[in-house]
Amino acid sequence: MVDIGTTLEMVQASQAGMSAVGAGLAVGLTGIGSGIAEMGIGAAAVGATAENRDMFGLALLFTVIPETIVIFGLVVALLLLF
């Protein structure tokens, strides 16, 4: 509902503000999500690499797989902003 005294500019500004907040949430929450996901994988990757150096490449690859979540968030954020 729009107040009687609200002008068109104010509505537009409020919409832009809301989508900025949405974009922020999209990146922020997915960042936390991938952080949690990477915790376990990273710990196991460091453990495996400590025992066997050859595991390094594969371990790094596994560790960054949850990064896809934050990329989805980033895409959503960009769609919201532009």
Binding site: G40, G47, A48, M55
Partner: peptide, 22 residues
């Protein structure tokens, strides 16, 4: 189920598993 201690458990248990495989 996520606590600050669990990463250390995962680390140590993975090392043990790798050693066992050797």
């Amino acid at each position: 189920g996520v606590s600050s201690g669990s990463a250390q458990y995962i680390y140590a248990c993975t090392r043990m598993r790798v050693r066992k495989s050797l």
